[in-house]
């Protein structure tokens, strides 16, 4: 049996994972939002189109889907979408700011037997969290974790380090453990979307990252076997250098049904309003080899500022 990195996407009939940004609406205006969410997308997928995509996910036996946004709990029929996938045994993760999770929603998530609900918590206290997540409410986010946990939902926390909060990494991990969550995820902030626009005020220094990873490694040992502490040590350029050689077996669907190669690149390899998921998957496989993509990655490596263009979509197929 072979693990992970030797998977060649050309050997796969379909993706293994769909990251689906189901809406662009958001109640917050986070300084580091990758999707620059907060607006309504005029050409978003209709209800019929959405369910056609869901049906294809089931038909292609794609084992794992994550719904994010925007804020996915603002999507008008998120629970129906969840129910459809779960009824068909597709594992599902919801990535939310947690602010709309009340007792009733927590119970509904519990009944869906989700893989997990992931709450964004960018501070061990309200100060850093709310400075970074404009309009955000730390109490609501932490209460969401408590409610979900109390209902038996597998709950995770994601923490994005910035200059405002990187020093809180140890505290947030301890806090996550005190909440009883399944795990906490973190990694270097990605220079895309609104984070790219605010890069100078957000990006931690090398020295701050060094301390961050030292603490993470200590916490990893401290919570070994008790709570999952997961961090991805690479930045977005390192990720791209790797992915150009070994693309992930996943598709990133945005609210209007377009499918991006990967978050940090502007390239779109298909449109689920016009093409089947299978056709888009075939496009995806060949897209990575296109000179346009490879050359853009080369340019990015020399000029990381170009990452700010990640949400200015470039169609690879016409």
């Amino acid at each position: 049996m072979d693990k992970n990195n030797i998977i060649n996407i050309n050997d796969l009939e379909a993706p293994l994972f769909i990251a689906w940004q189901i809406n662009a609406e958001c109640n917050l205006g986070c300084l580091h939002c990758c999707e620059e969410a907060g607006h309504s997308m005029p050409d978003k997928l209709s209800r019929d189109e959405t369910f056609k995509v869901l049906e294809q996910i089931v038909a292609l036996k794609i084992p794992y889907v994550a719904f994010s946004g925007g804020e996915p709990l603002l999507h008008p029929y998120i629970f129906e979408m969840c129910e459809f996938l779960r009824k068909n045994s597709i594992d599902l993760k919801i990535e939310t700011n947690g602010e709309y999770i009340d007792e009733k929603k927590a119970e509904r998530f519990a009944s869906l037997n989700l893989r997990s609900v992931q709450i964004s918590l960018d501070g061990a206290t309200s100060v850093a969290h709310e400075k970074l997540r404009l309009g955000g409410n730390w109490n609501k986010a932490t209460n969401a974790c408590k409610l979900l946990k109390s209902k038996g939902v597998n709950t995770e926390i994601v923490f994005v380090p910035t200059k405002f909060n990187i020093h809180e990494i140890g505290q947030i991990i301890d806090f996550a453990y005190s909440l009883g969550v399944y795990g906490i995820y973190t990694g270097k902030i990605m220079r895309i979307g609104r984070a790219a626009q605010n890069w100078d005020i957000l990006c931690p220094s090398d020295e701050e990252y060094k301390e961050f990873f030292t603490t993470l490694n200590e916490k990893l040992k401290q919570y070994d076997g008790k709570m999952k502490v997961y961090f991805y040590p690479y930045d977005v350029l390192e990720e791209l250098k790797y992915r150009r050689m070994s693309p992930a077996a996943s598709l990133l669907v945005i609210p209007n049904g377009k499918v991006k190669l990967i978050g940090p690149l502007p390239f779109v390899c298909g449109n689920l309003k016009k093409q089947t998921l299978k056709q888009v998957w075939e496009n995806y496989k060949i897209s990575w080899q296109k000179p346009q993509v490879q050359e853009f990655i080369d340019r990015l490596i020399k000029e990381p500022k170009l990452l700010a263009e990640s949400n200015k979509w470039v169609e690879l197929f016409h």
């Binding site: 049996m1 072979d2 693990k3 992970n4 030797i6 998977i7 050997d11 796969l12 009939e13 379909a14 293994l16 036996k61 084992p63 794992y64 045994s89 594992d91 893989r115 997990s116 597998n154 077996a249």
Partner: peptide, 22 residues
Amino acid sequence: KTRDEKFGEVIFDTLKEKVFVT
């Protein structure tokens, strides 16, 4: 989760986000 492929099968631990092939 598992899924049949031409070469055999993919085994995907979605909780750990680890993929195996056989």
